[in-house]
Design a protein around this nucleic acid. Structure first.
Lengths: 236, 236
DNA sequence: TTATGCTCTGTCACTAAGTGACATTCGAGG
DNA sequence: CCTCGAATGTCACTTAGTGACAGAGCATAA
């Protein structure tokens, strides 16, 4: 009937607005669809369920996260990569703070929406754990699966904490810095789990010597070199 | 029509069996009800939704967990109490291993059921975090909320890991011991977060002297006494 | 311009989840 | 035997979600 490309966005907006006014359960898909100026069937072409209309971007964001994790350099420390992945999720919320805050109001009030979002975030968490698994030497995977799941859950919890605090305050200040700080805290506690291949270094002023066992992961060596260089350029 | 007291159990059993045969989505509530020998309406008197019939005990278990946490002695270390709370949940699964394994088969295959269970377990996790909050001095709560949420998530993740491993193996060996081991690992990493009120001790062979700041929590002092006693009886 | 094809959309019809109202039956206790 | 309350059965209804088919909008090639 009108512009043909913004149906999805209009539906999301209508779903959130109407749910905030009358309540989520008291709002029918018919009402949402007609408020957005489309047919009822069109709603279900864009969203699998009524709850999905409130969180329309989790699908695409999950794909972005998994693609990022699949493409991450093996030279980087695993927990740092997972932290960046969490940052991707946070950025998605921060992209539209107003909508994020309105959504948050809804999820606090409607249990069905809370469960739906928990289901969505659990998929990120699973992606984190799967990534940590993949980074580990195949022989070690079974032994470290517990640590991976706990680490993934911890990063997800830190992300959720920062996100909720930010939303409660209205979406104003710098979220990314807070996430970095939170995950640094968590990573400090969990660090021992990810430093198995021990590395020793004997450094002088001019020469850097790194002594490591042959099976030491590359990212650990990179980490040692970086800390030994102390922020200065490593002489070529 | 027949015995009047076991409708709930019969419905749960029918729901799991039929869903394993034909698939969860392809099984209607009508079929479940008639298989259990009751009317369709009776199903919804016992369960809020079709998914609920597969996990009928989470509600009661959550009440047990929160009651346990509310009644826990302030002399015990917070992480130990939370570990015991997780044990309550694990015991509920272990009470009927066969059903638990069948349920697990279902949750692996049906996304709706997986999301439903994740929603249920998230409520335990919230209870854990809320308890850790309550244990903290009111002035410290805001500063430590991140740690509480991460700790709660970690314990929940450890529980889920042990549970899933156990279910995958068919439900045979000693689960409780594994949960203890897993949570011990986690608690070791998280321990620094829960030892703020520093305690120093100067011990001799016959006399025990505990030096602590006045605001040191009781459970920390108890912990110190216990470790100083080294498993022996503390002389009265 | 018309023809062709693709994607998004509208319409209709249908199954099944979940709820409210009211009647009925079972079981315990007087 | 009668009564009361809780669990159940019956009926009717709203609404979520899906399948099938038709039409509208927009591109590209002839």
């Amino acid at each position: 009937m009108s512009g043909r490309r913004d149906a999805r966005r209009a539906l999301m907006s209508a779903a959130i607005s109407l749910s905030l006014e009358r309540g989520f359960d008291a709002t029918t898909v018919d009402e949402i669809a007609s408020a957005a100026g489309v047919a009822r069937r069109t709603f279900f072409r864009h969203f699998r369920a009524k709850e999905d209309a409130v969180f329309p971007d989790h699908g695409a964001c999950l794909e972005r996260v998994t693609a990022f994790l699949d493409a991450a350099s093996p030279l980087r420390a695993p927990l740092e990569v997972v932290a960046d992945a969490a940052r991707i999720v946070l950025d998605m919320y921060a992209e539209d703070p107003e909508t994020a805050v309105r959504r948050y109001e809804l999820t606090r009030r409607v249990p069905a929406l809370r469960d739906w979002e928990i289901g969505a975030t659990s998929r990120y968490q699973r992606a984190f754990a799967r990534y940590l698994d993949a980074r580990r030497d195949p022989a070690d995977r079974d032994r470290f699966r517990l640590q991976h799941e706990v680490a993934a859950a911890s990063v997800a919890a830190a992300h959720n904490h920062v996100l909720r605090t930010w939303l409660r305050e209205g979406g104003e200040p710098d979220v990314r810095a807070r996430l970095t700080a939170a995950i640094t805290d968590v990573a400090a506690a969990l660090h021992p789990w990810f430093t198995h291949g021990t590395t020793e270094k004997a450094a002088s002023d001019e020469v850097m010597v790194v002594v490591a066992r042959p099976d030491t992961p590359l990212w650990r060596i990179a980490e040692q070199i970086q800390s030994a260089a102390g922020g200065q350029n490593v002489p070529g």
